[in-house]
């Protein structure tokens, strides 16, 4: 199973203001945690190594011990540390924008088992498993789910929100630099929870605009092979679940396949988007992603060829 390589998703390499605030919080807590642990460990080791005086019946030293150890170590130290950590927590929480500015780009992200549907309502774009965002701008992502609970989790951007079937939540996303970020499903959603990945593509304003206009253009498949492929697409019932918007097909159970060739991966982050991989995916998706919703489609090599040509041309 060959996977695509992307920028490693890590909380420690923040790519957005929110992620930076969270990373600062983490480093602060780490330092405090190490200090607390060292104080504790030092006292423990010293206590084990020292020679205690003979036990005595006098209780006064006992009471002093209580006061000194428990009040200072058990109450005062954690209280101070916790107040600092809690203040830092509130500080970081305030860094998360409560709402997006009115002119923010709006994206609708819907979780399915086991892929993401991505819509840009104002731009009229529908795609899957790829979230293109312009660098440096706040983007309002409205998330929900069609079936079970999924979660949008982009560690590099400091974003996480559960995608619930009963409501739509909004999260504000912002990327500082161009780059591609892993976002794996963050809530166990079933058999292929492992292979449910969204790629967040942060692009410069010009690249983003170019991507938008490329998605808005539809082309009519011209070649004979592609037209034959269209027949296969309908005849093999691909059309029941998938849509090619330029082609007035409207299946909505599976990912929209318009402009499929421009996508980076297949199967929600599972394999690179190559012609061979598409062919494998169409003929036996269950071998690649066992438990995925897509059934096996038996096709002759000629039919497959035609279908591939159609998908490449279709947009």
């Amino acid at each position: 199973m060959a996977r695509t390589r992307l920028i490693a998703a890590t909380s420690l390499h923040p790519q957005s203001p929110v992620a930076e605030a969270i990373a600062d919080l983490w480093w602060l807590m780490l330092v405090l945690g190490v200090i607390v642990f060292l104080v504790f460990a030092g006292l423990l080791v010293a206590g084990l190594r020292r020679t205690a005086p003979e036990p005595s019946e006098d209780r006064a030293p006992h009471r002093r011990l209580v006061a000194r150890w428990i009040v200072a170590g058990g109450v005062a130290m954690p209280a101070v540390v916790l107040v600092v950590v809690f203040a830092a927590t509130l500080q970081a929480m305030r860094a998360v924008p409560a709402s997006a500015p009115a002119d923010a780009l709006e994206i609708e992200l819907t979780g399915h088992r086991f892929w993401y549907e991505v819509r840009y309502p104002a731009e009229g774009i529908v795609t899957a498993n790829e979230l293109h965002v312009p660098v440096g701008r706040q983007v309002a992502v409205r998330v929900t789910s069609k079936d079970v609970i999924h979660s949008l989790w982009v560690p590099a951007l400091g974003t996480r929100v559960d995608m619930l079937p009963e409501r739509t939540s909004t999260v504000v996303l912002q990327a500082d630099r161009p780059g591609e970020h892993h976002s794996r499903c963050g809530e166990f959603c079933g058999i292929q929870h492992t292979n449910m990945e969204l790629i967040v593509v942060a692009e410069g304003p010009d690249d983003f605009a170019a991507w938008v206009s490329s998605q808005q253009r539809f082309t009519e498949p011209t070649g004979a092979l592609a037209r034959e492929g269209r027949a296969v697409f309908v005849g093999a019932r691909c059309v029941d679940c998938h849509a090619l918007r330029g082609q007035q097909t409207a299946g909505a159970r599976g990912p929209d396949l318009t402009h499929l060739p421009g996508r980076r991966t297949l199967g929600a982050g599972l394999s690179p988007n190559t012609r061979e991989n598409i062919a494998d995916w169409i003929t036996d998706p269950q071998a690649i992603k066992p438990g995925a919703e897509m059934p096996t489609t038996p096709l002759t090599p000629a039919q497959l060829d035609a279908l591939l040509a159609y998908l490449e041309a279709g947009g």
Partner: peptide, 15 residues
């Protein structure tokens, strides 16, 4: 007393 203050304090800072 501490825990109550701790719980309620965020109302001063958060919407």
């Amino acid at each position: 007393v501490l825990a109550v203050l701790f719980t309620g304090a965020p109302a001063l800072f958060l919407g």
